[in-house]
Write a protein that binds this DNA or RNA. Structure first.
Lengths: 159, 159
DNA sequence: ACAGTCACTTCTTTTTTTAAATTGACTAAC
DNA sequence: GTTAGTCAATTTAAAAAAAGAAGTGACTGT
C-alpha cells in the first residue's frame, strides 16, 4: 500500500481508501458479508493468490477491520470475521453493488438484499437523515473545512 | 488491473471493484466530486505520478466513468468530467467518507455534505426504499441467485 | 503408511508503480 | 525575441508489488 501512512490531518476519504480501497481487499470484505470465513474459501472464491490473501488478511487485522477467531487448537485453526469496524463497511459494499448492478449488470442480479424488518427484497439507497429524502450527487453540496481548504490551495500552488 | 476482464456472468460487485476499486481511481473520483477537472490539479491534489494519472484517466474514460471535454483548441486543452455513470458513484464515495469519518477521523470533518433541498448539513445513510428505515449490515440478508450459488459451490470444490 | 486438508510461507518471474526527465504547444514577462 | 512558465502528457530507469508455483507443518481420515 502506497499511502496507508497518510497523516492524521488528511481527508478521511483518502484514509478510508488507503485502508480498504483496493481491489482484493474489497473482494475479501464482500466475501465476508456473504459468510465466508476461512482462508481456503477466500482463496477459491476470489481466485486470488495465497500470498496476497495472507498479506491482505494481516493488514485488515492490523487495521481492526477483521479479527482472527480460533476454532481449533490442534491443529491451530482459525477463521476470519468482521469486527464492528468491518461490518460498518456494509454501506460501501452495497453502494458498489448497486452501481455494479446498474452499470455493469446483466438481467439477473447475482446477489439480492432482503431487509429483515420488512421482509422485502430491496435496493437500499442513500437518504438524507433530516428530511428522509433520497440523495444523489446532484442533491448534495460539499463544504470543505477551513484547514482542509487551505491545505488544498497550498497543494495546488506548490508542485 | 488484474481483473478488469471479468466475464459478464460474474458477480457485479467483483466487476464494480475491477473498474473502480483501486486506490488512485477512487481518489480521482473523489476529486471530481470536489470539482477538480484538470490534469495538473489532480496531480497536485492527489500526489500521484503523472504516468499513473494519465493511465487511470484513460481507463476511466474507456469505461465511460469520465469524459474529456475540450475547453481550448489552441493549444489543445481539455478537462475531465464525470459522466452519469461516474456521478452515480456518489453513494460509494459518500459511504467511504462516512466510514472514514467514523473510524479514521479526528474531531473535525474535512468535508461536509449539505442536502440542497433542506439546506441542512447531513450524514446520508443507507435506507430501505420500502419501509424507509435505516439499514445496516445486521438488518439485511443476502440471497444468492441459483446460478451464482452453483458457481460458488463449483469454485469451492475445484482448486 | 499414505493421501488429503488447512493455513500459510518461500521463491522466482512478471507486471505495476514511482520518480525524474523530456516533449510540444502554446502564453506572458522581460 | 529570448526566456520562463503552464498544461497535458510521454519516456525511461529503478523500485516495489503481484502472480504463479512449489513447499511446509500440523494434523485427520482411510
Amino acid at each position: 500500500m502506497s499511502r496507508s501512512d497518510l497523516p492524521s490531518h488528511t481527508c478521511t476519504i483518502a484514509r478510508a481508501v488507503a485502508q480498504v480501497g483496493d481491489e482484493w481487499t474489497l473482494l475479501i470484505v464482500r466475501e465476508m458479508f456473504l459468510g465466508t470465513r476461512r482462508f481456503d474459501d477466500f482463496l477459491r472464491l476470489t481466485g486470488m493468490s495465497s500470498h496476497l490473501l495472507a498479506q491482505r488478511l494481516k493488514k485488515l487485522e492490523a487495521e481492526g477491520v477483521i479479527r482472527r477467531a480460533p476454532y481449533s487448537e490442534r491443529p491451530p485453526r482459525h477463521e476470519y470475521r468482521l469486527t464492528e469496524k468491518g461490518r460498518d463497511l456494509w454501506a460501501v459494499i452495497i453502494a458498489l453493488k448497486q452501481w455494479g448492478d446498474r452499470w455493469l449488470g446483466t438481467d439477473d442480479t447475482p446477489v439480492q438484499i432482503t431487509h429483515k424488518a420488512c421482509g422485502k427484497v430491496v435496493r437500499p439507497h442513500m437518504t438524507c437523515p433530516d428530511c428522509g429524502e433520497r440523495i444523489e450527487a446532484h442533491d448534495a453540496e460539499a463544504q470543505l473545512s477551513h484547514t482542509f481548504e487551505l491545505e488544498r490551495q497550498a497543494a495546488r500552488r506548490a508542485p
